[in-house]
Design a protein around this nucleic acid. Structure first.
Length: 327
DNA sequence: AAAAGACGCAACCGCCGGAAT
DNA sequence: GATTCCGGCGGTTGCGTCTTT
């Protein structure tokens, strides 16, 4: 990544410039690219002194040759306290965070900043990047699947070392699609118990898109999947678990048009809204009226904890320490 | 060992809405 | 009321790293 020095030229940059300094700054060079430690230090000192505001004044005071927007972005995404760091594997989204993002994306759309408020230590950029990479992966999977290759692809590097048979990487791409875009209600069944999580809603647009994908000739495989084989779920990788994918009634009716036996086989009982998956509370806002009321039975909760949580990274519990606590 | 591809991430860009003038 | 400025947000890009071939 190379450092880049440019002069202000676009309207956005000029908007950041106070009028009184416009002429002077036009002659100056604006610094872009990666931040140096010294610049971070200057920015942190400024925030410590004046608070996270008046970003433009950082340049007008001659402290940094950065736009106010750049300063704000640096602070929000990297320097702000209580962000999850990448010292070890802390940056990676936990399975719980992935589920939360998927569900909230289905509920709110691409409102990354809003979604990020539900994930302690995550920024909108984190969520956006996570979603973007997930969509890219999905697109690639769909593309590969539409090639209709009969020979299964080997596990991606994300599955390396998980002792997964390559063939298991294939379950219907549409399921990936629906999961990623919040269409499905997923029921996770273990040997001794079951729990379910309900994704918020299914829009007709999403179903239409799914139908379009189906009509484009995407190959379907007739087999269940396990968590350990989901190329889009980085963790946990729990073997010997299978999931059925029931849909909401209206989605089901549309999906029937897919005319594929897979869906008829995997559809579970409709309207199974009794066992519900609990979303974390937002950390920076409290819109209780918009939160869907969910509950998990005690047995299911304990069982899920036994089966799932032991394999989760410890930091994933950061977000559920105290749901009532809001900074 | 080298090339290609996948992936994660930081940072920039453009648009927008609200506040200030 | 119009204009300017600032900050917030979502989309996108570019680059380094890692894995696979």
């Amino acid at each position: 990544m190379c450092m880049q020095i440019v002069t202000p030229r676009d309207s956005t940059t000029q908007h950041d410039l106070p009028n009184k300094n416009m002429e002077a700054v036009k002659k100056e060079e604006m610094k872009k690219g990666p931040w140096k430690a010294e610049e971070d230090e200057v920015l942190i000192n400024h925030v410590n002194r004046y608070g996270p505001r008046d970003w433009s004044s950082i340049r007008s005071k001659g402290l940094l040759q950065r736009t106010g927007k750049s300063c704000r972005l640096r602070w929000v995404n990297k320097l702000r306290p209580n962000l999850k760091r990448c010292f070890f594997s802390g940056c990676k989204f936990s399975a719980e965070e992935e589920r939360t993002v998927i569900e909230l994306q289905a509920e709110f759309g691409n409102k990354w900043a809003r979604i990020a408020t539900y994930l302690r230590g995550r920024t909108d950029n984190d969520v956006k990047n996570f979603w973007s990479s997930r969509v890219k992966r999905l697109a690639r999977i769909l593309h590969n699947s539409s090639d209709a290759s009969t020979s299964p692809k080997p596990p991606s590097r994300r599955n390396k070392g998980q002792n997964v048979k390559p063939i298991q990487c294939f379950y219907p791409p549409q399921v990936y699609y629906f999961q990623s875009f919040g269409l499905v209600e997923e029921e996770v069944t273990t040997a001794s118990s079951s729990s379910s999580k309900i994704l918020p809603y299914s829009s007709s647009d999403q179903v239409d898109e799914a139908l379009r994908l189906s009509e484009s000739g995407i190959k379907l495989e007739h087999q269940p999947f396990s968590f350990g084989t989901d190329p889009l779920m980085s963790e946990p990788h729990i073997a010997n678990q299978q999931a059925t994918i029931p849909f909401y009634p209206e989605s089901r009716e549309l999906l029937a048009r897919l005319d594929n036996p897979y869906y008829y086989d995997i559809l579970g009982p409709a309207g199974c809204s009794e066992t519900l998956f609990a979303l974390p509370q937002p950390f920076f806002e409290l819109p209780p009226a918009e939160r869907r009321c969910r509950h998990v039975s005690k047995d299911d909760e304990e069982e899920e904890a036994d089966v799932f949580l032991d394999d989760f990274p410890a930091d994933m519990f950061d977000q559920v320490d105290d749901p009532n606590q809001s900074p």
